[in-house]
Design a protein around this nucleic acid. Structure first.
Lengths: 410, 410
DNA sequence: TTAGTTTGTTTAGTAGCGGCACAAACTCAG
DNA sequence: CTGAGTTTGTGCCGCTACTAAACAAACTAA
């Protein structure tokens, strides 16, 4: 009964319907040649060729004459299909505990230019976001590239469709700040073309890992990460973020992983949040956390440098057991086919992969027969690249419409 | 790199692409007239008319001349669009602790004919499934209707794509029984046309509730139910079952809801499974469960008949608190926009809806501001109807192909 | 050199859908 | 009772994205 017709998309809007899927295949590197593009789309060679030509005409992809397929195959060599290196870009912005970062990101998830993060902290989101957008606008001017959108990653749950940050951790922003609208406003004022989006940083990191990192090819990708305090989760299903009905899904921090654990502000005790974050690690290792460097940095140095120390090792194993219990619970509920860990959790995995995999397999119901692959994240700045993915999405969904929209800022 | 082209569907296969979506709208009662079908599909009136005509020609829907819209509106009255009452049916089968049940189900989820369940229990799945299929085949012969598929609901997790029952509770079947293949074989041997499917009963109940019951219109529907022992969960996202990467998602029984609780076979303690099922309720109420009637039946009678009894009431409140904690955990992870409860959980909700809603709102992170609607299931035999939905799905996805396939049994 | 294989392009031809005009069936005002 | 307004249903035309099939191109292998 809702007026909007969201039921069918593909066939009803004019223009080539295969344009978006084709671009996504090139964007994620799954279509290196026209031949595999043909197979992957399930269309005839004629159509795939026309689609590729149109994407090339739009300036989104480029075709090299160099052979794209593996050498040694017989038959006529295929031409290489790749993202246009000098095509349009999107503005990606990330706010984190220590400051912010702005970047221009092209198709394929390639970071074209970056503005170094600065340690500026303000209780006013508009001020911080204004600074990031300014940095981004400067990058855009310097590069002279066309911009088709902007994406923002924040360390907070972002409610949809309002675009408000419900719990901006370590940012001192007021809860419920309309970050998406503030960001969009700043972007518009800076003269940057295209729509603006905002999302949770772990969600966006998961999106990036799925398209360009350790999550490539996974159908149900679960990501769990912890940076400074608290634990974030994300799920990517069939290439799309699963954010629940209002963007608040995968709030995994309050799974009980230690019945006798320390109390948590949520009202429970022994939550994943307070049992597996860097602070928990440092205290388990018997260290008073120093304020000079970040908790994650301290934990990382400890794990990499002094893993021989029995106290450090014991703390590591304790956290692995707790994390494994939490992951097992998530496996039971979400049944992913791959898990990618970031932040301190990634370090814990690197330190003792066997133990973590064993705990997860042992405590998940069906894990005994096989178990889910657990991998460390592989992408640098994955939240930033994920923010770019958010901005690229309209282009991937409908290149013609998105490019036309960003051409006329209206 | 998988050969199959699953990327695009709609525009590439021949035939009207709006046929499936249109049938689904009529099937779920969301398109009572051609006019709203037009709006809902987002096509022109001409196209919607043609689509409706083709569906009618296929014998799937019927158009009455009686006005379909609400009276009192001006303009030309619309014709009523409805499912064809004498059209094809599917065979739905359900296995439960006390026996089995077979039924013929038409479009719209209407049960056309039922064969009474019988108390036959065997350790051989082939024997029990053979009996259900025989009963179904008898129904089909008596009705003379055309059959386009068969669906089976079993009280067990069903692994995909193998179609094996991993933990057939209270059935004494060997774990890992290939129920889908056994069922399909029996269906084929009985001369029943169309493909055969199998699924977990709670999953299928959720699907049915979403399409024809308390879950209608929900985007992210979470269902939780307990029948005899153990707790089942299911999630329906955008009208499709979310079963994870291998059909094993929503195994919610082992969320920790009572740190000091009784030990569970999973290795943990205080799991939802052992803290909120009928056995837990009866023991909490101080009763030794009698073997004569089912545990759910006993619990239900106790709750409805002796709710005044302090012990019963205390047991009820204890279970509500535990269930609420579990639901809150699921809300944090899945962020549904509606929750539907079945079995004993439904009874608990009916007994004290205020208390359950309060607990869930209090213990879920974002629940304090609003809270998710929690409703009791409304459909009789929802697992059975859900099994039928499974069988209808190919027809809803592509009516032309599905009907053609079931015509020629090959 | 010739056959075989894979890739890319050109040429019809088909069909689904949008756009538009028109017809049908009602309500409401006067 | 009549005509204007409104909503619904249908017939016709044209566009265009697609398939199909033949052809051309660029390699390998014998």
């Amino acid at each position: 009964m809702n007026g909007k017709a969201t039921t069918i998309r593909t066939r009803l809007e004019r223009g080539r319907s295969a344009l978006g899927p084709a671009l996504e295949l090139v964007h994620t590197g799954r279509a290196p040649t026209r031949a595999v593009l043909t197979a992957e789309l399930g269309v005839t060679r004629a159509t795939a060729g026309a689609v590729a030509a149109e994407l090339e005409a739009l300036g989104l992809i480029q075709v090299d004459s160099r052979p794209g397929a593996a050498a040694g195959s017989q038959g006529r060599p295929s031409h290489r299909l790749a993202v246009n290196d000098s095509g349009p870009v999107v503005l990606a912005a990330q706010i984190h505990a220590d400051g912010y970062r702005a970047a221009l990101v092209g198709l394929g998830g390639r970071i074209v230019a970056t503005a170094p993060g600065r340690k500026t902290v303000s209780a006013d989101p508009a001020q911080v976001l204004g600074a990031v957008v300014d940095a981004g606008a400067r990058l855009l001017r310097e590069s002279g590239r066309r911009c088709v959108g902007a994406g923002l990653a924040v360390p907070s749950a972002v409610a949809e469709p309002e675009g408000t940050a419900l719990n901006p951790l370590h940012l001192a922003w007021p809860a419920g700040s309309p970050v998406r609208d503030i960001f969009a406003e700043q972007v518009r004022e800076a003269g940057i073309t295209g729509p603006a989006f905002a999302g949770n940083d772990v969600n966006l990191a998961a999106l990036a890992e799925h398209r360009h990192g350790a999550g490539r090819g996974a159908q149900h990708l679960l990501c769990v990460a912890t940076g400074h305090r608290g634990v974030g989760g994300a799920l990517v299903v069939d290439g799309r973020l699963h954010t629940g009905s209002s963007g608040l899904a995968l709030e995994v921090g309050h799974l009980t992983v230690n019945p006798d654990g320390r109390p948590c502000y949520c009202g429970g005790r022994g939550c994943l949040d307070v049992e597996t974050d860097p602070l928990a690690f440092l205290t388990a290792a018997g260290l008073a956390p120093g304020p000079e460097t970040s908790l994650l940095q301290q934990s990382r140095e400890l794990l990499r440098g002094q893993y021989g120390d029995p106290a450090v090792r014991a703390a590591c194993e304790e956290l692995i057991d707790r994390l494994g219990l939490g992951l097992a619970g998530l496996v039971n509920i979400l049944n992913p086919d791959r898990i990618v860990l970031g932040g301190l959790h990634r370090e814990l995995l690197d330190a003792d992969p066997q133990r973590l995999r064993a705990v997860v397999a042992d405590r998940s119901l069906w894990g005994r027969s096989g178990g889910v692959p657990i991998l460390p994240s592989t992408l640098d700045h994955n939240s930033l690249v994920g923010a770019a993915e958010l901005a690229w999405q309209p282009v991937l969904d409908d290149p013609l419409a998105a490019l036309a929209a960003s051409q006329t800022p209206a």
